[in-house]
Computed example of a mutant assay.
Amino acid sequence: MILGAGNTVTPLIEQAKRRGLVTIVVSPDGDYKGLKLADHQVHCDFRHTETILEYARHYAIDGIACTGTDVVVPTIGRVIDELGLYGTGYESAVACSDKWLMKQGLIRRGVRTARGLVCDMPDALTLAKETIGFPLMSKAVDSSGSQGVFKVDRPEELHDAWNASKQASSSGRVVLEEYLEGIEFGAQAIVEGSRVKTVFLHNDQLTSPPDHAPVGHSIPCTLSPDQQARSCMEIAAAIEALGICDTVSNVDLMLVGDTPYILEIAARMGATCLPETISIFGGFNAYDVVLSLALGEPLVAADIYKGMPNASRMIESPQDGVVLQVRVPESVRLHPNLHRLSIYAKPGDSVRRFRVGPDRIGDVIVTGASVNEAEQLAADLASLVEIVFA
């Protein structure tokens, strides 16, 4: 059973089909490519846990998986607990999908993370000003894809940022936390059972404040060997603290000086081309790893990575509007270092100026002789894609 059928999840469904697995795809009804690939479709809101559990029993599923979104993780945890499947159970899944519970779990176990407080009512903003100070981060407790996440530099900006975060939260809850100044980067940690098998650290390219979203990723990570080793130790401690099992865990980190801090950690693999980024570098298929972990199959990891430097870049719309045409020059389509070009927007689609991950209209993935070369090429090719508006 796979939860989700959009652009992020479709490669997981495609890999399941290549393996000859019977796929039960759960998604709200709509024009989703993943639904068309499914052996069985379940049209359902992801939060309708009991309904999904009923279908899981009906089909006698052997595993359940997702990628790229947090909203489905608690439901997956519930199914795992009820049916005795492999993966992260409900209690840990909820903690990984709620930024406040996550922060409390990390702090209790001594994992380095930003201090903060939950702020449900505007009256609590005064306490945040006094105890956290500025700049600070305002985050929707239960959003993903960087939605509802803002940097707040001055007191007069706090109420509007808090309100925007609150609007992005399904529960209406907001975490306000200290702003950590440093180098933001990320990781995909392969967790077999409760043991961290491999960690792929990657570089992140981000939008400018007040929006705070990744526009690209690249690998190999440019941190020093010591900084990478300390980061891997902190990631392992966070995974143990939250009880994450049998998944590829997406981790956001900040390096402050030489000290890594965990910003957020998820019980699912990352989105925005991260599965492809680590797959190219590691010489394997990250979606296949997710399926193997969900089925309890032992992983066979290569001892030597291919180590191919690569980078991804989101293709962004410069404005809100309705798409008439997306023009991709031949210099992009035929570039020898282009690994993948994806265009999601179609004529007639309404698109938004890029603010968060789901706003992307496409992406490019390229390889290079070095990570810096790949990053520059990815940015250059993405910038050449032209959107014509109606």
Rank of each mutant, 00 (worst) to 15 (best):
L106N: 05
F389S: 07
C273A: 15
A266W: 00
G6W: 00
E330T: 11
R173A: 07
V300M: 12
Y261F: 15
P358R: 11
T131G: 01
C232G: 00
G87Q: 06
L274C: 07
A213L: 08
G84R: 02
L136H: 07
N337Q: 15
G20L: 10
V371E: 09
A5K: 01
R268S: 06
T75A: 05
Q147T: 04
S144Q: 09
V94S: 05
Q228S: 07
D142H: 07
P122F: 13
V149Y: 03
G270R: 04
R173D: 01
V248P: 03
L117V: 05
K103R: 15
L381M: 12
A56H: 04
F134A: 09
P225M: 12
G68A: 13
F200R: 06
L127M: 10
G182A: 09
P225T: 12
G282W: 03
I52K: 03
A267C: 06
I361L: 13
A38C: 09
G186L: 06
S331F: 00
D39V: 07
D363W: 12
V118E: 14
A140V: 09
K151L: 15
I80P: 01
P74N: 10
I107Y: 00
Q104Y: 01
P209W: 10
S170P: 00
P260A: 14
E82W: 02
A164V: 01
S317A: 15
A187Y: 07
I76V: 13
Y305W: 10
